[in-house]
Design a protein around this nucleic acid. Structure first.
Lengths: 215, 215
DNA sequence: CCACAACCTGACCATCCGGTCAACGAAAAT
DNA sequence: ATTTTCGTTGACCGGATGGTCAGGTTGTGG
């Protein structure tokens, strides 16, 4: 029962709590502002206002605007990598790819801002995450290509180019986040309901899984 | 054979030519810069340098940065609308949607910058083209939904939600433009060759057309 | 040839933005 | 209790940016 005693998890203490809380506040605000305004259009003042902190305080936690941005981009990438676990340990494409679609669609719904920031970053030539693309993403991609190729060799799905299948999976699932505004406008200006999200997931899964001959 | 005599087409004359030429120069440069830097990150100076004109000259042809941007966005939208013609007059989904995929993939290859500008615009909440989304795009979408529904009713394809099919078509085809940098990185840093583009088109068509039971 | 209109552009300005800093308050260590 | 470390913040600065403008040049119609 000393000062650092705590029921569970990571470090605690008033100082640590304040830091964690403020970093979270700033990162959440930054994600939204970067998504809605782009890196160039975002301002530290806007992020500060949304976070409810003075601008100078942001620079205490994150040295530069680019540092803050880098952290936001890394976050969504981590989330996507985690979702990729659905891919492994699956006996066949219907369950593996099906679970992957479910996971990515859920992320599109829960982290639309992060998805947009990533899209923006890649569209602008990936100035700050080029190394991620060349290392982690490349390795991950090659690993899944091997898995898909194995399924093809085992006759569990049609012989399509695994690479283009992956692109289609990314494109389609992320579209629901990145182009969410367009989809909403075409949905009479209203966000998709729970039911509609489920229909979207079902439609995507049906089309893709049929498209590759997995069902 | 007066001064305005001309072999063909629209107005000519030195004055008119200069205007057309400079507007084209500026629009092309702007499309590229807006695509690579986003609206906020783009500067009039950058566009001017790329166009090879003094900055003040840009403001002679386009009053504000936003005016210029609006023109760039309208351009790609027009191009996409034209491509949509492939959809009509098609007897069945295999030819109609197949032609549409071909057209959109070709646009992704030929106008990657425009596609990115559009994506960026929509991601940021479509501040300057909300009216397009609500009028022209909505009407166009409803028209195609009707066409697809007819094909379904005629038993020419599976009963999938036409809306989600359209989203998948847009997402997948535009992905090759918007995420071109990522695709290039995953392709050993090299742009897709002619052969690879054809493979991409073929893969996309196979997966989608099979996915909806059109082939 | 003249007068008017269209086109061109260097220099300039007001504003905004990322980032700094010094001074201060609060927690924690000794 | 004292010192040290960490967190806080208003005020400020240099540089960049969108936009203006006055004075020029070039084309065109009469």
């Amino acid at each position: 029962m000393t000062q650092t005693a705590q029921v569970s998890q990571i470090k605690s203490g008033k100082r640590t709590d304040i830091r964690r809380e403020n970093e979270r506040l700033i990162l959440d605000a930054a994600e939204k502002v970067f998504a809605e305004a782009g890196f160039g259009g975002a301002t530290m003042q806007l992020i500060a206002d949304l976070a409810g902190l003075p601008k100078a305080n942001l620079h205490y936690y994150f040295a530069t605007k680019e540092d803050l941005y880098r952290r936001v981009v890394s976050q969504i990438f981590e989330i996507w990598l985690d979702a990729a676990a659905s891919f492994d340990n699956a006996p066949d494409p219907a369950s593996g790819i099906g679970a992957y679609i479910d996971a990515k669609m859920d992320i599109s719904r829960r982290h639309p801002h992060g998805s947009k920031v990533w899209a923006s970053e890649v569209m602008h030539g990936a100035p700050v995450i080029q190394d991620y693309l060349e290392t982690t993403l490349t390795e991950w991609t090659n690993g899944r290509i091997a898995v898909i190729q194995r399924w093809i060799d085992q006759g569990k799905m049609n012989a399509i180019d695994p690479r283009h299948l992956l692109y289609m999976l990314w494109a389609t699932t992320q579209h629901y986040a990145d182009f969410g505004h367009q989809i909403e406008t075409l949905n009479a200006g209203k966000p998709l309901s729970d039911r509609q999200w489920n229909e979207a997931k079902a439609s995507v899964k049906t089309m893709i899984l049929r498209g590759i001959g997995a069902i």
